[in-house]
Design a protein around this nucleic acid. Structure first.
Lengths: 194, 194
DNA sequence: CACCGTATCTTGTCGTTGACAAGATACGGT
DNA sequence: ACCGTATCTTGTCAACGACAAGATACGGTG
């Protein structure tokens, strides 16, 4: 269950990761402090550096974990195109710490091997799911898979705006439901007849 | 032209703002240092604090400036719905420092008066432009202006993904052109026939 | 022109942080 | 029992944000 078996602390790497995710959810990635993390875990201030090298290394691990989780989430989504988009939004809001780190490459090392693998995997799942479920075998003439990018853009944009608190009130509590009624407008001719 | 008339430095507040924007474009908001800003402007390390109070105050000023510029940009956009979206994306990529700060409210003070006014103004311009140009007088039954949110989401998502470097290669150099071919898929029935 | 109030900027300082170096500790294999 | 190594601690340094107190220069008033 744990990749680093019980040493002095037992499972410090995993403990630090979960503590970091929680801290980011509370105060954002910018406010994350390695020393505060060490205090929460009850270890010395330099202990995190051994597992992650530096701050960027910690964010790299979080991003990789996030891309892996996203791939799993999308794989388990429903068969409808709509369900895939809703799953994307639900992941973003439900794992906002991971999501925020994942799409801020200046926080981590984009050339990390484990990260690249996870990112590529989630990207492949997303593209495959969108392309397959859109029921369109060949992409249109306007650039590479413009409809896939349109679908990705709308769900990513909605999730980002939701997390930023930029959306107007009155959308309800559940971001998934709100997203569903918004994504429905993609590939829809004119009035909101459904 | 300048709100703080020539004192010791002359126009320190404006100088610091432009230097901050440039620094953020180079290394992101997280790496911004007030002391480094002071060094670039050739003043003492505590000079910025007088004009902005603290780091959050500086980001507040940048965000307000960004929302104002966005409102102006959208006001001057073309008559087509597509043009409005392209203008949004062009602003995001052309003013990435402002854009990134604007949609990270944990960086600044959301209750600042000047900021709230600018944010509301740009929001009103965006909503009015989208609602007017979509040629749909009454919103659909699915929530408050679902189509406006869909349009906002797709342009915001595309801009965010572009800035994060998450989009695949082959979209060309100009984000505006790429955005146009992607946004076109909104409100479009099935295949890419246009 | 002399004076004063005030905005602007400087100097000095404190606690915190990230990063690095060197040493101590505990585990696993032989 | 022993040794190599991964894990963690202690110590240190430069940089940073924030605050306090003082110096400087401007604008207005007499």
């Amino acid at each position: 269950m744990s990749d680093t078996r019980g040493y002095h602390h037992g499972d410090l790497r995993r403990t630090l990761l979960t503590a970091a995710v929680q801290a980011i959810e509370e105060s954002g990635p910018a406010a994350l402090s390695l020393r505060d993390l060490a205090r929460r875990a009850g270890v010395s201030h330099a202990a995190p550096a051994h597992h992650f090298g530096d701050r960027a290394g910690l964010f790299t691990a979080i991003a990789a974990q996030g891309f892996d989780t996203l791939a799993d989430t999308l794989t388990g989504a429903g068969d409808e195109l709509l369900d895939l988009g809703v799953a994307y939004v639900r992941f973003a809001v439900g794992h906002r710490a991971h999501f925020e780190v994942m799409f801020h490459p200046d926080l981590y090392r984009t050339d990390d091997a484990e990260l690249r693998a996870a990112r590529e995997r989630s990207g492949a799942v997303l593209r495959a799911g969108l392309a397959h479920r859109s029921g369109r075998p060949t992409p249109a003439a306007d650039g590479p898979q413009g409809d896939v990018l349109a679908a990705w853009s709308i769900v990513h944009g909605f999730a980002t705006l939701w997390l930023a608190g930029a959306l107007p009130a009155g959308l309800g509590e559940d971001p998934g439901d709100a997203a569903r009624s918004v994504i429905r407008h993609l590939f829809t001719p004119a009035p909101g007849t459904d």
